[in-house]
Design a protein around this nucleic acid. Structure first.
Lengths: 337, 337
DNA sequence: GCAAAATGTGGGAACGTTTGCGCAGCGGGC
DNA sequence: GCCCGCTGCGCAAACGTTCCCACATTTTGC
C-alpha cells in the first residue's frame, strides 16, 4: 500500500505516480487514470506523516480550550470541528483546565506535531509568545490576550453587558446586582465595564454591595445569593445580571431554595444561553453571546490565514467582535415600587 | 533546531545525539548530559512527524464520537483527553453526527495519520471492519458493535434499566411508561430489555400504549408527553422512565407546560444524569450511567493495548460493563391509589 | 524544416528521525 | 599474554512522501 507499490503495478516511476495522484504537475491523462485506478484497486492511502514531513504541514489544527463542560466551549469545539472537516483538516483537542503551564506545554507539542494552525482560548503570555515565534497561524478565541499572536475573535462583551443592563434599567430597576467573573480575563472585565457604563449613562449609582466577583462556577452563584439576601430589605437588589451561565447554575437553585420568586421578587438576566436557562421555570432572559458564530468566524479566519501562509504578515492582526443578542423570556419584569 | 544541529554543536554524531536524548541505547553519562544541555539551550524539539514516520507511531489517539453536545460524550471526551495527556498522547477528535459515511471516512483518515489507537462510539460495520484490518488498537465505547474490532466498554444498561424500573415498581407503580431510544443501538435495546425484564419479574404486564420509541432528542420527549396524556384517565401512567437525558430535556418542560406535577401526578426517573436534572424543580431521580468512569476505563484499556502492541491478539477482545447507580432525588414517590 | 517551447516521464535528493551494524578501545578472566 | 565481552560511538539505511532537475519526445511558431 506504498506509493511505490502503486507505481510498480502501474508501470510508472514513483514521481509520476505521485503526480498522477496529487494532480499537480504534468501527467498524461491516460497515465493519470491508470495510476488512479491502480491506487483505488490496491486501496492505497497516502501516509499523512510522510507527506507532512516532506511538505511540513500536517492538515491538523489545534484547539486549545480550558474545558469542554462549559456549553460555550463544547459548542465552539463542535462548530470548529465541523468547519475543519469540510476543509480537509483534523482537530487536535487540548484541554488546559485553565492552567497556564498546561497551555504552554500544549502549544509546544502542537508545534512538534507541525499543526497548520492553532485556535486558543487561553491567554498565557508565555504560550502566546511561543506561538508567535513559531509563526504558526493563530487565532485567539473569546479571550483577548495582551500580546496576540494572531487575529482575535471576541464577543462584544462590553456592548452586550451594557445592553443587558439597559434592558433592566428600562424595566425601572435601579438596584441591579452583578455576578461577575474575575477581571483578569478580558471578557470578565468587559462585561463588568459594560454594566458600569450603562449605570453611569442612566445616572444610577454603582454600589459595591451589589457587586459580587468570583470564579465563574456554580458555587459563586450560590454564594452571591447568600450575600445579596443578607442585605437589609431596602438595599436588596430588584434585579441581577449574571455574567456567565455556569454561575447561573448555582444562583438559580439557590434562589429557589430560599423561596425567592423570579421574576416577582427578583428579575434575573444571564449572559450566555444554555439549555438549563431556556427550560428553567420561568424561562430565563439571556444575552446570547453566539458562541457558535464565534467559533465559525474564528475557524474561517484561521483557514484563510493558513491558505495565505506565504504572504502572511504575522504581526498584522485584526480583532473581530461578535455581537450578543438579547433573548427576552420570562425572568425580567418591571420593578415594583 | 534540528537534531543535526544539536549533534553538531555537541560535537557528536547524529545517532549519538538521538540516543542521548531518547535514553535508549548506550551513551556515556558525560555525553548524554552534554547533549541534553545543548538541546535545552538551543530549544530543540523533536519533529513528531519525522519520528512518527520512522517509528510508525504518532502518539495520537483518535476519538470518534457522534456529537459533543450530549453531556455523556463531552464528559467522556474530557476524561479521555486528560488521561491521554498524562500518558503523553494527544487526542484527535472526530465528530460524526451519527453519519455512518462520516464514521468510515474518519477511520480512514485516522489511519492515514498513523494514530496509535482509536476509541469509537459509533457502530458502522464497514468502519469497524476497516479498523480491524488495519490492526490499530481499538476500543468501543458505549455502543456494542456487531463485529467488534477490539475491547468494548459499555454501560450495564440492561441491569441499570432493570434496577430503575424496579425502583418504580417498589414504589407501587404499575403503569410505568417508557421513553426509549431506537432499538438499533445496543444501549437503547438493552435499556428497553431491562425495563421489560423488571416488569416481567414483577408480573406486571408490559403495555404498548405506555411505550414510546423515537430518536433520543428533546422533541421525542415532548411528543411522548403528548401521547401519554392523550390516554384516558385510568390508562395513564403513574410513572415514566426516560432512557436518556436529552429526551428528558423535552419531556420535563412539556410536563410543566401541561401542568402535570412531578412527582404528585407523575413520577419521573431518567437514565443518565445531567445538570438540568439535578437542578430541576423537583430534582430528578436518575440512574447515573457513569460516563466518566466509562471513558476512564476505556482509555486505560486502550493504552494497555497500545503498550502491549507486539503480542496483541487482536481477535481476542473483552467486554467490560460499567454499572449504573441510582441517585434518588425528589421526582419519584409512592403511587397514589 | 528547424529552433524553440511545451509536454510527459524518471532519477534522486530531501524532510528529521530511529536503529541495526560494525569498529575501536579497554578491562578482566584464565 | 591472549581472547572475549562490554562500552561508547559513528555510518548509513530506512520510513513514505514531494518536488526540483534533467532528459526525451512531441508540438508549435516562423
Amino acid at each position: 500500500m506504498d506509493l511505490r507499490q502503486v507505481a510498480a503495478v502501474s508501470g510508472v516511476s514513483l514521481s509520476t505516480a505521485s503526480r498522477a495522484l496529487s494532480g499537480s504537475g504534468r501527467v498524461s491523462d491516460t497515465t493519470r487514470q491508470r495510476v488512479r485506478r491502480v491506487a483505488e484497486d490496491l486501496g492505497y492511502r497516502p501516509n499523512a506523516l510522510a507527506r507532512g514531513l516532506r511538505t511540513s504541514h500536517s492538515r491538523l489544527v489545534g484547539l486549545v480550550v480550558t474545558n469542554l463542560v462549559n456549553a460555550s466551549f463544547h459548542t465552539i469545539a463542535e462548530v470548529v470541528h465541523n468547519r475543519l472537516k469540510v476543509a480537509g483538516y483534523h482537530l487536535v483537542l487540548c484541554i488546559t483546565g485553565g492552567d497556564a503551564e498546561e497551555e504552554r506545554a500544549y502549544v509546544e507539542t502542537l508545534r512538534d506535531h507541525n499543526v497548520d494552525g492553532v485556535m486558543v482560548v487561553g491567554s498565557d503570555p508565555a504560550a502566546i509568545e511561543q506561538l508567535r515565534r513559531t509563526g504558526i497561524p493563530t487565532v485567539h478565541l473569546a479571550r483577548q490576550p495582551r500580546n496576540p499572536a494572531g487575529d482575535c475573535v471576541l464577543g462584544a462583551d462590553l456592548e452586550g453587558a451594557r445592553e443587558a443592563t439597559r434592558h433592566l434599567l428600562g424595566l425601572s430597576h435601579r438596584r441591579i446586582a452583578l455576578v461577575a467573573g474575575p477581571s483578569t480575563v478580558t471578557s470578565g472585565y468587559e462585561r463588568f465595564a459594560g454594566y458600569r457604563l450603562a449605570l453611569d449613562e442612566a445616572g444610577v449609582p454603582c454600589r459595591d454591595e451589589l457587586i459580587f466577583q468570583g470564579p465563574l462556577e456554580p458555587a459563586s452563584g450560590a454564594e452571591a445569593v447568600a450575600r445579596l439576601l443578607a442585605l437589609p430589605g431596602r438595599r436588596r437588589p430588584t434585579a441581577v445580571l449574571v455574567t456567565n451561565h455556569e454561575a447561573a447554575f448555582g444562583l438559580l437553585p439557590a434562589l429557589r431554595e430560599r423561596r425567592v420568586r423570579i421574576p416577582d421578587d427578583l428579575s434575573v438576566l444571564c449572559y450566555e444561553d444554555a439549555d438549563l436557562l431556556r427550560w428553567w421555570d420561568p424561562a430565563i432572559t439571556v444575552m446570547n453571546n453566539n458562541a457558535a458564530r464565534m467559533g465559525e468566524l474564528a475557524v474561517n479566519i484561521l483557514l484563510e490565514r493558513i491558505a495565505a501562509k506565504a504572504d502572511a504578515d504575522a504581526a498584522a492582526w485584526t480583532e473581530y467582535r461578535v455581537g450578543a443578542q438579547l433573548v427576552v423570556r420570562d425572568s425580567c419584569v418591571v420593578a415594583k415600587s
